[in-house]
């Protein structure tokens, strides 16, 4: 049986752990609120920009064929995979589920006799891919706590360059979509070519809650719009903006998810620590009681021998 002192030490160390996990939970909760605000504020803008780009691409007709970011290449030889993870762990399955999905997609791609080209944001994803012996074409770290638009722009421009240079024929992005503080959904989207890009339900439906948005997509309004400047030029600006905003949005979703996941993980950890402390307190009481019983026995035995 463990001595009282031993048990007391263990209780003290669990209490320290609990203090730390509680503090981390509070920090994550505060950051979550900010991250959540940013992502909900961005969603209507991002959806509208994506919708606008797709409409422009569709209406551009013959011009679209000359815009490389729009053309689907056949056959696809290599697939770029961008994994959006966090710089830090201690967030439950947050990072590992992204890496697992990424590796799975990589195997799928290889099964199709295509070669995967890896990109990753966040130290966790970068180190885990490197550990698995994957060569990274792009590694971006140090901002997952609070991504700036410039970070998204940097990543987007690398992806677009790789696509235009023919290093990749398609780009997939995998990130944790933010649903609620308790739920993150592993989301996979096709980013490039834009013609094949994943259409999110909320993009097509109206992200703004306006009656117009959904109706605006109906085919009877395929009037050729006026373009300023011409469609070719405007597509050349819109398309990179589309990629940027999509990456930015994925980064923000991931950040909100990360804080949510960490908050949940830390709350569980605090609860577990509390449970352990309770059990240990029980054990300590038992140990103390055992010691007392032992002493009484010794006293009684001692007294008995004197009689």
């Amino acid at each position: 049986m463990a001595s009282q002192r031993e048990v007391r030490n263990r209780i003290a160390s669990f209490k320290n752990i609990q203090k730390i996990t509680r503090a981390m939970e509070a920090v994550s909760a505060a950051r979550l609120r900010r991250a959540e605000q940013r992502v909900t504020a961005l969603r209507p803008y991002a959806s509208a920009l994506r919708r606008m780009t797709r409409q422009a691409a569709r209406d551009a007709g013959a011009v679209a064929a000359r815009v490389p970011l729009l053309t689907v290449r056949e056959p696809e030889e290599s697939v770029g995979i961008l994994l959006v993870t966090a710089d830090r762990g201690l967030a439950g399955a947050f990072n590992s589920q992204i890496i697992r999905a990424g590796v799975q997609l990589g195997a799928e791609v290889e099964g199709n006799r295509q070669s995967p080209v890896w990109f990753a944001t966040g130290r966790r994803g970068v180190s885990s891919l490197t550990f698995r012996g994957r060569q990274l074409a792009g590694a971006y770290t140090g901002f997952t706590d609070r991504p700036a638009y410039a970070d998204a722009r940097r990543i987007a421009s690398d992806l677009v360059t790789a696509y235009l240079d023919g290093a990749v024929d398609r780009v997939e992005i995998i990130y944790n979509g933010y649903v609620s503080p308790l739920t993150q959904r592993v989301t996979r989207e096709t980013l490039l070519p834009v013609a094949a890009a994943t259409i999110r339900a909320e993009d097509e439906g109206d992200g703004s809650g306006e009656s117009g948005a959904a109706a605006r997509d109906t085919p009877r309004r395929r009037v050729f719009p006026e373009y300023e400047p011409d469609p070719d030029k405007i597509l050349r600006v819109l398309l990179p903006a589309y990629v940027e905003i999509s990456v930015y949005r994925a980064l923000l979703e991931s950040t909100a998810s990360e804080h949510g996941a960490r908050m949940t993980a830390m709350r569980n950890a605090s609860e577990n620590a509390g449970e352990l402390i309770e059990n240990l307190a029980l054990e300590m009481n038992r140990a103390r009681q055992a010691e007392i019983t032992q002493e009484i026995l010794e006293v009684v035995a001692g007294a008995g021998s004197l009689v």
Partner: peptide, 11 residues
């Protein structure tokens, strides 16, 4: 831009 403007997409 006034009401009933022709469809437009511009920078």
């Amino acid at each position: 831009i006034l009401a009933n403007h022709a469809p437009l997409l511009a920078r």
